[in-house]
Design a protein around this nucleic acid. Structure first.
Lengths: 135, 135
DNA sequence: TCTTGAGCTAGAGTTGACTCTAAGGTTTAA
DNA sequence: TTAAACCTTAGAGTCAACTCTAGCTCAAGA
């Protein structure tokens, strides 16, 4: 039974975001006081926590909506939950591969720049113009 | 001396994007035929290639603008070019760390789901509700 | 009681990098 | 010559996930 401000503060979310989650249906309509203010139940708060954790795992709000629906179903739809996680994992592995190569390239660019003489130009721009190994 | 369509096709960019780059000043105003159509010079095409390569390296159009300005300066401003690349590298290393941990978590979630019995629920949702190790 | 300060709503604005549309004009190949 | 393909512009729309605004009401402390 907390006000929107307290929930926002304690979970590190803005009050705007909380109202937004409710508006798009990620949160069931939150109970209101006679004065029209939201009163978040423990259940509501847990839901918000779920959303934030899933977001940290790079699930989009749309994917989170699906996760929530899966949770509401009698028993979790195993293949579908699995598929969502597998897809996320695939996307992350792709990003990892991409970023690792990129890191190699940037490190190389940087060391070439650092080892260039005092008055010399830093060959970073040239490196982008004429990719040496990858790209 | 190519039409916008040919440049777009050969570089895998849309004609819209090419006009957009010109509009925001990443490309100097492209020469036009008497009929008003763009004729891309070899120089323009190289510039577009530069943009695409830098984009693949996760530089934003704004950062690319800076890179281009550095290139236009008499001699490349070593500290500034270096700073841009170093910042990009830092950001990428942060992403890598984040994604690696995430991968561990997702793999764990997936294997817990796979090893759950035939009729049993896949504990993916529970795993997000009650993070076991990280988060 | 009065003054902050918190909360309410509907709806507009933000960001980045385009994409799309409408209403034309221009080239080119048959 | 004429149809199809291509190009032009200005400006609106897209996406995600909020953020911000205006103009209000409501609650709590001194």
């Amino acid at each position: 039974m907390s006000s929107i401000g307290k929930v926002a503060e304690s979970l590190g979310v803005s009050t705007h975001a909380l109202r937004y989650y409710e508006k798009i249906g990620l949160l069931a309509p939150v109970a209101k006081t006679s004065g029209g203010r939201r009163e978040f139940s423990a259940r509501d708060i847990m839901r918000v926590q779920f959303i934030k954790r899933a977001q940290r795992m790079h699930f989009s709000l749309d994917e989170i909506r699906t996760l929530i629906e899966l949770d509401k179903a009698e028993s979790v739809d195993k293949p579908q939950a699995q598929k969502l996680v597998q897809e996320k994992l695939d996307a992350i592995e792709e990003s990892l591969t991409d970023l690792e190569q990129l890191k190699v390239d940037l490190v190389q660019m940087l060391s070439a720049c650092l080892s260039s003489g005092e008055g010399e130009d830093c060959p970073i721009i040239e490196a982008i113009k004429e990719p040496s190994v990858s790209t």
